[in-house]
Design a binder for these strands. Structure first.
Lengths: 217, 217
DNA sequence: CAGGAACCGTAACGTACGGTACGGCTCGAT
DNA sequence: ATCGAGCCGTACCGTACGTTACGGTTCCTG
């Protein structure tokens, strides 16, 4: 018997008060990085430390809840595709690229990835897994149907949707995320994002489009 | 007056003993993540904490020296290119791709990037910059001459070497680094790396090769 | 209005760790 | 043989922070 694929799909019952607290924690995370202390969260959210411990168990629990909370807010709308033509397919791809670039270059994403990566070093909690599931893997899950539809419609040529997705991912993200995480600023303005989305889509179609019958394995 | 472009190029005078200590710190970083304490380093390297403080100032100094030390060991040999033909160019690219994948999937690289990213959050030192300079930017600096030579020889078509490099970077790295940093294991075996290097090179040549005159802006 | 649950603010405790002090050992120079 | 520099091992100090405890306040319920 196979269990639920992604068990963090379980809805977390949160009162409004608790959501406020997680928002406060999120803001602190963005501002101060992983320095966030229980006292600081309590102060910012104007609650007592006792309540923090009652609701979230311990510091790791609070961190995990915060990451989940943010993740639950990011659900990007899936682009619907009926029977795609080349134009609508291209627009879908651009749209995904744009959304993804916007996500990874956002303050919250950078902050959350940073704390998840720190924790991945001393593997005591599953922050990395959560971030990955709601980021890169969620994107793949939403994008693959689009790719498959494109393939069925004879617009795309590839053997494996996973590999094709990773190519697209690489063309979109390039060095942006690692540079942001390391504190560099690769100039991700609105305009640059738009440009990148267009470029990545063109490149992907050049590699996997059915136009000229060319494609690199 | 312009200062030295990359000031961490300054050679760090290190005694053998100090190198031993930095190696010990490196091993601890790989094993335990950022938990590394001064006491642990002293124990592992069989030196006194007093010596650590005398030689490296404080904890951040030790961390910085460790990152520098590892960086100084990674100098990848530049692939020499005279007048490239398509075959030698292709081999150069594959070689860079292979080396890069090997680097980013190594234990030490993952550990070092993790600590640099943690520190980038609370921007107190320049670890992120150091890692970036010796990683992504060093790669670009070594690869661009190859790309330019390919362009001059009429083998490659692109407007901007930087943009072309970033495309290559994306095709090579894809989601590998972020997944590793977050604790995922995308199966980077020797064989997979080889396969990826070949694939990325083919794709890059499909986009920027002069063969068919095609290219996506 | 009485009783109690939930929560706030704050004080207190324990511990881990960065940083310092100091006594003893080794070894090269004189 | 003597001296001193450099280093080891360890004990020690101060602080930050996770965690717990507790008295006071608000607010809901009967």
């Amino acid at each position: 018997m196979v269990t639920q694929a992604y068990e963090q799909e379980e809805e977390q019952k949160l009162t409004e008060r608790q959501k406020d607290i997680l928002d406060a924690a999120l803001r602190l995370l963005v501002e101060d990085g992983d320095n966030l202390t229980m006292a600081a969260v309590a102060r910012r959210a104007r609650c007592s430390k006792e309540s923090l411990y009652k609701w979230f168990g311990d510091r790791d629990g609070l961190l995990t809840a915060t990451v989940r909370w943010q993740a639950s807010k990011v659900r990007v709308v899936p682009v619907d595709q009926g029977k795609p033509d080349l134009l609508s397919l291209s627009e879908s791809l651009e749209s995904y690229a744009r959304d993804w670039l916007k996500v990874i270059s956002s303050d919250t994403s950078v902050a959350l990835n940073r704390v998840a990566i720190s924790h991945a070093g001393s593997g005591r909690d599953k922050l990395g897994e959560i971030v990955l599931q709601n980021g890169r893997f969620a994107l793949a899950a939403r994008l693959k149907p689009v790719l498959d539809a494109g393939k069925r419609a004879g617009l795309l040529v590839f053997e494996d949707a996973e590999t094709a997705f990773r190519t697209f991912f690489g063309l979109v993200a390039r060095d942006v995320q690692i540079r942001l995480l390391l504190g560099d600023w690769p100039g991700m303005t609105e305009a640059a994002i738009e440009e990148d989305a267009v470029r990545a889509t063109k490149q992907f179609l050049a590699l996997h489009g059915a136009g000229k019958g060319q494609q690199a394995k």
